[in-house]
Design a binder for these strands. Structure first.
Lengths: 130, 130, 130, 130
DNA sequence: GTGGTCTAGACCACG
DNA sequence: GTGGTCTAGACCACT
């Protein structure tokens, strides 16, 4: 299975799942045209409700990552996404408070860069083992 | 005033305020020994509930950023914070989903580094833009 | 072939097919007395389930567009249809939400009329583009 | 109340509600800055589930019609919407099958224009009586 | 079998 | 009090 859910996390399940699937697509674990498990299947595999899975699938569809083929389930789209300025502003807003806290904990520039490098590269390893 | 609240943001007010104050401390806008406004004062200045301000002050005290001096208000502490492994893990968990979405929007490594550089440096310029 | 099916469309296949055939009849691509392909034939041509084709044929028969001749297949009827008030109400109900959304996107009266003109005329050009 | 739900309609409740609210905004029954009823309130007023209302509010937020002020409910946005080509294509696709059926029922060009005129003008009267 | 919709009840974060 | 999230069970349209 290409995703695990941490029930104890403060991050909502549906966000964890969304991130996991996007990560799997990015890493190649899920390729264009691949079929996603049905909402019922994935829900039961992960031990979560099918409505939660359904919500995620719909968000992914709205954001263009997947689409639905009538009664045949959800399929991975090509990813021709581009990043506009609004997106950039959004990312900055989300990153800023975290980085502020990192500086507050005396993380220096070198350590900061190391961490970023680590995560940047780890992202591609999230989708393996599909 | 060293902080502005964005009512429309999805980020809770108390978190925005907390980040702003930490940022002000980091940037030198608030130095060790400086007195913070009273919860009543700051609440009315920002147009937010004084309970929200109070909550933030208590969090900041718990995290060691400020101190309460016998009914005289809150004062800024020295900042000898260090970062343990648990903190690091925490930061990584928070950063990962954002960076995954950035990669999904075709942000390359160079652009990523630029953005990080930008934010890193902005943090030192006080609580503005937050 | 006078019809193409868009698998990704949110419009059910059977509706797409129904509309296509009606459109073909209207445009003269299918004339009175013409024989429709067998459900098996059309289903395989379009890559859809023969039950879906069958369903459409039955709907078209119920609505008077075609007839079944004793195990020899389906034939196009004359089209003496008239529009009663119930039909009119029905059309209005279907059109209203779409037009509301068009107005919400700042489409003006002139542009609206242009679009309607375009579609009105396109309808006569057969089932293409559907 | 600015909206009524037809339980018997084949159109999903959430779509009816969405259209009603957009219509009310267009007609001026709901102006920029106006507060929408809480999901609980509107749900109980309309005799529908609060989750259904919630779904609609979230769609409207995604489409930019409203936004949420934390714990104070939903407010109507300014409507600077513009219509891109994708939207236009979408409208055409939705309108086409309906217009085909209208032609199939022998509705002539004059009657067609009358109907469109009627609906176009009716749209603005949907939101009164708020 | 697929997803779509609706209902319902519960708990939570926030202010 | 507000919306956010999760669970659960039901019925439906479609193929």
């Amino acid at each position: 299975m290409f995703v695990e859910i941490d029930e104890k996390s403060e991050i909502p399940i549906y966000r964890q799942l969304k991130t996991s699937i996007i990560s799997a697509i990015l890493s190649g674990g899920l390729k264009e045209g691949d079929r996603l498990p049905s909402v019922r299947q994935l829900g039961s595999d992960l031990g979560i409700n099918l409505h939660t899975v359904n919500k995620v699938y719909n968000i992914l569809k709205d954001e263009g990552y997947i689409n639905f083929l009538r009664n045949q389930g959800a399929y991975v789209n090509a990813i021709p996404k581009t990043c506009n300025n609004e997106d950039l502003m959004d990312f900055e807003k989300k990153l800023q408070p975290i980085i502020i806290e990192m500086r507050a904990k005396n993380i220096g520039r070198e350590q900061f860069d190391e961490i970023m490098d680590l995560i940047w590269n780890h992202v591609l390893e999230g989708g393996k083992g599909l």
